[in-house]
Simulated assay, not measured.
Amino acid sequence: MRTGMVAVLFCLVMSAGVFAAGDSAIRRNDQPINIKSNELLTDSTTGTATFSGKVVARQGDLTIYSDRLVVYYAEKDKEVDRVEAFGNVRIVQENRRGEAEHAVYERRGAKITLDGGRPRVFQGEDTVTGEVITYFVDEQRSVVVGGKDGRVEATIKPKGKGQNAGAKP
């Protein structure tokens, strides 16, 4: 479970491409995972572990908050196959944050999907919002879909260079 959860926690934080991987992510794999919840239910017949009630999962500088977190294990190799976070999902790492009502990490396809409640990803003052935000981990690309009645919205603020181009010293 430890190796699979490390991948899950790391992958969830990569949502929408604005969360960056780096040396700290590699070191994170060696760090312990601390999960707190009001209840833990494991079921070997279905191959699941369900954490519920004010779930807080921490590993290094990465924290995931949700009402419920379900870990699904593959029958064949007993590795983590999929992880779903439900209700008030918030993923925080330094100045980066992802929010949705539902998030899924799928090992097959190395894909993270944020949906429900108009998902948003923030990095500093930059934001992206859509109906569904999907990040393909191996390809380091993301897709944000606006949905039937909505559009994708991104706000990207200048990073200093040229901000005061007309200002005099």
Score class of each variant (00 low, 15 high):
66 S>R: 04
75 E>W: 00
64 I>E: 02
109 G>F: 06
99 E>R: 07
14 M>Y: 08
122 F>Y: 14
130 G>N: 01
83 V>L: 04
94 E>S: 15
73 Y>G: 04
96 R>E: 05
94 E>Y: 07
21 A>N: 09
123 Q>S: 03
127 T>V: 13
62 L>C: 08
20 A>P: 03
14 M>V: 10
45 T>S: 15
102 H>D: 06
152 V>N: 03
38 N>I: 13
59 Q>H: 04
168 K>D: 07
54 K>R: 14
104 V>H: 10
80 V>W: 00
32 P>I: 02
45 T>Y: 13
13 V>G: 05
51 F>A: 03
81 D>A: 15
49 A>N: 08
26 I>T: 13
98 G>R: 01
29 N>K: 10
43 D>M: 05
24 S>L: 12
87 G>F: 11
88 N>P: 05
34 N>F: 12
4 G>N: 02
57 A>M: 01
126 D>Y: 09
10 F>R: 04
162 G>W: 07
125 E>I: 05
53 G>A: 12
32 P>L: 01
167 A>Y: 07
58 R>K: 15
79 E>T: 04
34 N>V: 12
101 E>C: 09
131 E>C: 03
34 N>W: 10
29 N>E: 11
84 E>D: 13
147 G>E: 05
100 A>K: 00
148 K>G: 10
108 R>E: 15
147 G>H: 06
150 G>E: 04
144 V>L: 11
142 S>C: 07
148 K>H: 09
17 G>P: 05
120 R>C: 11
135 Y>T: 03
26 I>G: 07
139 E>D: 11
1 M>E: 13
91 I>Y: 02
36 K>L: 07
13 V>C: 08
59 Q>Y: 00
81 D>R: 03
80 V>M: 05
33 I>E: 03
108 R>Q: 14
63 T>F: 01
130 G>W: 00
165 A>W: 06
121 V>E: 08
58 R>N: 15
149 D>Y: 11
14 M>E: 14
30 D>I: 10
101 E>G: 15
167 A>K: 11
19 F>H: 15
50 T>H: 00
51 F>D: 02
116 G>M: 10
24 S>F: 08
3 T>K: 10
28 R>T: 07
151 R>D: 02
77 D>K: 06
108 R>T: 14
57 A>S: 06
14 M>T: 14
34 N>A: 14
81 D>G: 09
129 T>P: 01
146 G>I: 01
131 E>S: 03
145 V>L: 08
159 K>N: 12
77 D>E: 10
49 A>F: 02
64 I>A: 12
135 Y>C: 01
76 K>R: 04
100 A>G: 12
86 F>Y: 14
44 S>Q: 08
156 I>W: 10
142 S>N: 02
88 N>L: 00
80 V>Y: 02
100 A>Y: 03
24 S>K: 12
3 T>S: 07
110 A>V: 06
111 K>Q: 11
113 T>E: 07
45 T>V: 15
73 Y>V: 08
127 T>E: 13
96 R>K: 09
